[in-house]
Design a protein around this nucleic acid. Sequence first.
DNA 1: CCACCTTACCCAATCGATTGGGCGGGGGAA
DNA 2: TTCCCCCGCCCAATCGATTGGGTAAGGTGG
Lengths: 365, 365
Amino acid sequence: MMFGGHLTAGPNVPSKCMGTMQEASVNESSRRRPVTIKDLASQLGIHPSTVSRVLHSEAEVARGAASAETARRVRELARKLEYYPHPQAAGLRTGRTSLLGAIVPRLSDLVLAMMYEGVEEAAAELNYSAFVMNSRDDPGEQRRKTEIMLARRVDGLIFGDAHLDGTLMPELDRRGIPFVLMNRRLDGFPSATCDDILGGELVADHLWEKGHRQVAVAAGEAYASTGVDRTSGFVNRWRGLGGDIEPGAVVWSGFDTAGGSQAVETILQTARVMPTAVFAVNDFAAIGAMGALRSRGLTVGQDIAVVGFNDTPIAAQLPIPLSSVRSPMLEIGKAAVQLLRKVLNRESTDSVRLKPDLQVRESSG
Amino acid sequence: MMFGGHLTAGPNVPSKCMGTMQEASVNESSRRRPVTIKDLASQLGIHPSTVSRVLHSEAEVARGAASAETARRVRELARKLEYYPHPQAAGLRTGRTSLLGAIVPRLSDLVLAMMYEGVEEAAAELNYSAFVMNSRDDPGEQRRKTEIMLARRVDGLIFGDAHLDGTLMPELDRRGIPFVLMNRRLDGFPSATCDDILGGELVADHLWEKGHRQVAVAAGEAYASTGVDRTSGFVNRWRGLGGDIEPGAVVWSGFDTAGGSQAVETILQTARVMPTAVFAVNDFAAIGAMGALRSRGLTVGQDIAVVGFNDTPIAAQLPIPLSSVRSPMLEIGKAAVQLLRKVLNRESTDSVRLKPDLQVRESSG
DNA sequence: CCACCTTACCCAATCGATTGGGCGGGGGAA
DNA sequence: TTCCCCCGCCCAATCGATTGGGTAAGGTGG
């Protein structure tokens, strides 16, 4: 139901502008009340319901609703007058808003921003509009933003900020609210994520192969499945290869640069043996880690290897290009929407895990 | 009109985790139709219009609409039943949606993402909801997204992707659509921006003072006022100080890392005299520039100085910390909303230019 | 005692689109 | 010829909230 309307706002349409509203500062061509289905109907001399049925039946000729000829005339006039359906009016009647809500920790996190771009794109293809709000990974904000979105009557929700120990998701499920998870998974709920365990394994393989035997992990937040899975994938594979991981070599921390540098500080202070490689579960944490290592006088890529995760565009452009696990962020966003569509259609849904691959660069070369 | 609804969701079902997908999905407590104003009215034995008036008159006692006692009872029940107004129903009647639309080049640009966080925050304070879409700086997309938002009946628009040579803004103005600009300005339209000219001047002062005499600029896209103003601020001040800028030392390019490295390549190839300092009008371009310089064997901060713009969080954390002009991104977003509010209220509006300051770091120290 | 005003409500139309139920007329089948 | 069905369309209720216009009851002033 898209009407290609280029809006050449020309002088056409006699559209006797109603006398009252004229004065308002803006000039004549504006303030023009949007075209309604009733306008179309009266100009065509038919009933609004017929117009609705025609426009609603997309390609087919609205069997039983109107003749092919009438349908053609309706569609033609709709295009000519630049008719756009009024979503809230339709929504009021149908109970659906064609709105999807997304909640992410923060849009200024490039990873989530890119996923949201995918969400927006995929939503648009399905004639949905998407909405996004930031929760700062704070449970209170999460709840508050969720309620705002529900008050807006979104048809479904996409959460990019699921906490492994959170109580919100089970609660929403109990309330029968359609939602899916994105980026982070949570057992029992459909999610679109990167195969984070595989990602961690790739890093383990790579570093092992490069001859490293002492490694450390900046593991991210313990409440996020991303950090947990990437870390466990790494650790388990490492052990499978015969490697050893010191206690204290895995440090939980923020996903941002500050978190990364703090994690490295901690590792350097507490490690019994100096690691020769650091795996940060996020590029920004990796950048922070590189900064901290450098200020300790270590040259990354030479004295010590660093590997990040997500392969954000800067990774390759850093002064010392950063090895990173490439995750399909845009696709994860799109997959989340597809998943949500299934949930809304009450189809069966299996979580989606998209495959990452490793980009080796100077920081671990 | 915010009702604090805490949703303690009753008996705390121990979340019978679904084996596969438990298609039944929703249980009795859900599927519960949201509370309407009519529900409240009938439970209180009064008319819906009275309820509406009470809830609508916020703090006052709705003079003439209801007694203080009735008002109290209404509000109490509303809170108890977790009544939330139905925005599209209200919007249908009032013609306002309490929706703001924002259009940005891309949310994965940290600068815009942060500004949008400001937009969202400020909008929420005014009981508006904000919407965002990406235009990729493509005029066609810009138009398309604008129409989608208008079809959604947003009350006003915020553009973060204004082109100096664009035709969309004048057209929207002619159509009487309320909008403001953010980040980039455009003569004749209200905008909330950083004082980019001042920003450029700060950089010129700094580099001049550090003794540099040969400089180059990675100037960003020529259609964006940000790049243009930062560059002209820099160039004019530089000349005012007695400096000289070679033709070919100012290179227009993308705002991203790729753009920055390309700009540097161009500069190095065409410059008559090697610059000792590079001003990139964007941190990401600066990072790209640093990468390109490094691969030419130059050590940033030693052989050559680099200064960026926006002071994004990574700037300080880079292996070679980047000097950058700090611009108040969050505040710009908030200011844009305030400005739009004025436009919507038909108050007079002056563009807002927020002051930046320079953060000097190793890359130019 | 009456006119008048205020208080505290109720009534009903309205916004734009959707949708179940009709209904007349024409054509095919029996 | 008669009955029935289907085509093509109309009617009217409906979604939830808002709002201009009442209207009774009670109080006040003259």
